[in-house]
C-alpha cells in the first residue's frame, strides 16, 4: 500500500463548533488520507505535541472564534520549537480577508474560508506536503 498522507485536524481555542472540521476530516479521509482528529478546545501546546507524536505531514487548524491571529501563529511557533517546522501548516474557518496576509506571514501556508470546496483543500495538501 502506498504511504497515506497524515493530517492532524485541530480545533484551537474556545469555540465549540466543529461541523466544519468534521466535514473537512471526512473529505480528507475519502481522499485516502489518515486524519487524526483532536477534538474541541485544544491549546496550541496540545496541538503541537500531538502533531509531533503522530508524525503528521500537515496540521490543519479550524477556528471560528476570532482568535486566529493569536492562536495560529502560536501553534506554528511551537511546531517549529519542537522540530516540526517542515510540517505543512494550514488554517480555515471564519477568518476576515484582512487578517489572512498576517497569518501567512506568520507561517500559515494557506487559509481556507467558508465556501471553499473541499477538493481545493485536498489538492492544496497533496501538492504541498513534503514527501
Amino acid at each position: 500500500m502506498s504511504k497515506p498522507i497524515r493530517v492532524l485536524v485541530a480545533k484551537p481555542g474556545l469555540d465549540g463548533h466543529d461541523r466544519g472540521a468534521k466535514v473537512v476530516a471526512r473529505a480528507l479521509r475519502d481522499a485516502g488520507m489518515e486524519v487524526i482528529y483532536t477534538g474541541l478546545r485544544q491549546t496550541p501546546e496540545q496541538i503541537a505535541n500531538a502533531a509531533i507524536q503522530e508524525d503528521v505531514d500537515c496540521v490543519a487548524c479550524s477556528i471560528l472564534s476570532g482568535a486566529h491571529s493569536t492562536l495560529l501563529p502560536r501553534v506554528k511557533e511551537l511546531l517549529k520549537e519542537k522540530g516540526g517546522d517542515d510540517i505543512l501548516f494550514i488554517g480555515g474557518g471564519v477568518i476576515p480577508a484582512d487578517d489572512i496576509p498576517y497569518l501567512k506571514e506568520k507561517g500559515c501556508a494557506e487559509v481556507f474560508t467558508p465556501g471553499t470546496p473541499t477538493t481545493v483543500t485536498i489538492d492544496f495538501i497533496k501538492a504541498n506536503v513534503k514527501k
Binding site: D30, Y37, G39
Partner: peptide, 14 residues
Amino acid sequence: FTGGAILGDRVRMS
C-alpha cells in the same frame, strides 16, 4: 475503499 481513516482516539485523551 480509499485507504483513508479517521483516527479519533485522541479526542478522549487530550
